[in-house]
């Protein structure tokens, strides 16, 4: 059941006013109501795909095909570039697979995620999402592939990118047909399954939910929920002009909502706080619309 037109229209206004094109899906984790704004359009997932990687790792651990405590050496040389975690550290480390996953989720560590992607393989990630019924979700590129393709397509030169609007046209990682992709609706279905213990064993699902709640970024989904007793767990994704986050918002009355917001900005500037914040604002409007549908009085308001 899809959300009312009023919420959708207001969400579209939020996107337009932030200078972005947006795609959103929000759904009750424990119910059938949802809000959809172009929710079935294929979108480039970027680092949001690390969610699919995480669920894959946990399922392999459930099947005994991978030991999350296994220690691996990550040499300093040849790490996948990034701006956080192992990507920016200078010395060799020895770390368990589950701690690599924690870094990949909490600070979107590209180097840590690359080790895991190489360990499980893209095909295994795709097997996982297919088996969860996500037919339009495909992992095509690892973090290293993304970084290399951006360079190859000339989108690594941010100065030039910000000046020439034509420079983005042929960038493969920005074309959902040619890179890792999903739809907002499929990402919320994955998150809802994870929160209902249906994506992997309950214990490992719990681990992932806690890791996602430790994500450090406050500027997107979480910015829309400035309530101390509301938990926001999520995973961001960013590529030139693309800003995304998919996560779950949990209210103290037990209301749980999976939300996926994908955006593409007309401006090429890397720093656009208003575009980041639009993700939170749009998510809050969607969640509030879902909460209004619940029987009046049955929900306790969150305290600001």
């Amino acid at each position: 059941m899809s959300g009312n037109g009023g919420a959708r229209a207001r969400i579209r206004e939020v996107f337009a006013s932030a200078g972005v094109t947006g795609w959103l899906h929000a759904t009750e984790v424990d119910g059938v109501h949802d809000v959809a704004v172009d929710a079935d359009t294929p979108v480039c997932t970027a680092s949001v795909h690390k969610l699919c990687l995480a669920v894959t790792v946990q399922r392999l651990a459930d099947e005994g095909r991978l030991d999350p405590r296994e220690q691996v050496e990550v040499p300093a040389a040849g790490r996948t570039p990034g701006t956080t975690g192992l990507s920016v550290m200078q010395d060799p480390v020895r770390m368990s697979l589950r701690d690599l996953l924690l870094l990949a989720l909490t600070v979107s560590d590209n180097a840590a995620a690359q080790v895991l992607f190489e360990r499980v393989g893209l095909e295994e990630v795709n097997r996982t999402t297919r088996s969860l019924g996500m037919r339009r979700t495909v992992a095509v590129h690892t973090p290293r592939d993304l970084v290399e393709l951006i360079e190859e397509d000339g989108a690594g030169d941010l100065t030039y990118l910000s000046a020439d609007p034509g420079a983005l046209a042929g960038v493969r990682v920005l074309d959902p047909a040619r890179t890792s992709r999903s739809t907002p609706r499929e990402m919320t279905s994955l998150l809802a399954a994870l929160w209902r213990d249906e994506a992997c064993s309950a214990g490992r699902a719990q681990e992932l939910r806690e890791a996602l709640a430790l994500q450090v970024w406050p500027h997107r989904l979480a910015s829309g929920f400035p309530f101390d007793d509301v938990r926001v767990a999520g995973k961001t994704g960013t590529l030139p002009t693309l800003r995304h986050e998919a996560g779950v918002v949990e209210y103290p009355d037990g209301g749980r909502y999976a939300v996926a917001v994908f955006t593409r900005a007309a401006r090429t500037a890397a720093n656009q706080p208003a575009a980041d914040a639009a993700i939170g604002t749009a998510a809050r409007m969607a969640v509030e619309s879902l909460r209004r549908r619940a029987a009046p009085g049955s929900r306790r308001a969150a305290t600001p």
Partner: peptide
């Protein structure tokens, strides 16, 4: 041509929260 407008190169300062591929 648009390349002319990039003659004076401004360095883009990447911040972790907005860096690409996060």
């Amino acid at each position: 041509p648009v390349a002319e407008s990039v003659r004076e190169r401004r360095t883009v300062q990447i911040r972790p929260a907005t860096g690409f591929v996060r």
